[in-house]
């Protein structure tokens, strides 16, 4: 895990060094180009503000009404057996359908358990290595006008499961 931790520390500085250095050597006007890209980035964030408001409000209300506590008590026997945080199951289920709805749950976990707790680390890694299975499949297959998706779902779920197992193991070693 030490090597992984060191790698985490150097990835971003190395990337910045490489991109800016390579750009400068290839005679790109690096600063002006950076400003243009950064502006595009701001526009992307502005576009997602309404989504985040809608979903954070929904998740916040669900937490406040006691629904998550109830869910936790119901799931406790199952999750306790595997040593997994209770919040993981609703998160996994939602992530299959919608990335932004999953973000709402992720932020709730960060707020209640902290981003550096076991649950927080597990969530961070899990969200980084999984995709929205059903959403992606429906949009992409619609473009090809395909209705029979054959083994796509099985493969997608298998790789999601692999990512989940890897996240649980890696997060367990980080705490």
């Amino acid at each position: 895990m030490r090597a992984l931790a060191n790698l985490s520390d150097i990835v971003i500085p190395m990337l910045i060094f490489f991109i800016v250095g390579y750009g400068y050597v290839s005679k790109v006007k690096v600063y002006e180009t950076f400003l243009k890209g950064a502006k595009d980035g701001l526009n992307i964030v502005v576009d997602i503000v309404p989504t985040l408001i809608g979903l954070l409000v929904a998740v916040g209300m669900l937490r406040a009404c006691g629904f998550f506590d109830m869910l936790g008590r119901v799931l406790a026997p199952v999750t306790g057996l595997m040593g997994l945080p209770v919040q993981l199951f609703p998160l996994l289920a939602v992530k299959l359908f919608s990335s932004s709805a999953a973000t709402g749950l992720v932020l709730d976990i960060f707020k209640t358990a902290g981003p550096d707790s076991y649950a927080g680390l597990l969530t961070s890694i899990l969200m980084s290595c999984t995709e929205t299975v059903f959403y992606t499949m429906s949009v992409y297959f619609l473009a090809a006008k395909v209705t029979k998706t054959r083994y796509t779902l099985a493969g997608a779920l298998l790789s999601t499961l692999a990512g989940t197992v890897a996240s649980v193991i890696l997060a367990g070693r980080m705490v």
């Binding site: 790698l7 985490s8 990835v11 890696l170």
Partner: peptide, 11 residues
């Protein structure tokens, strides 16, 4: 950024 390397490994 502590999660970068584990995230890459899991991915």
């Amino acid at each position: 950024t502590a999660i970068i390397a584990p995230a890459i490994a899991a991915t």
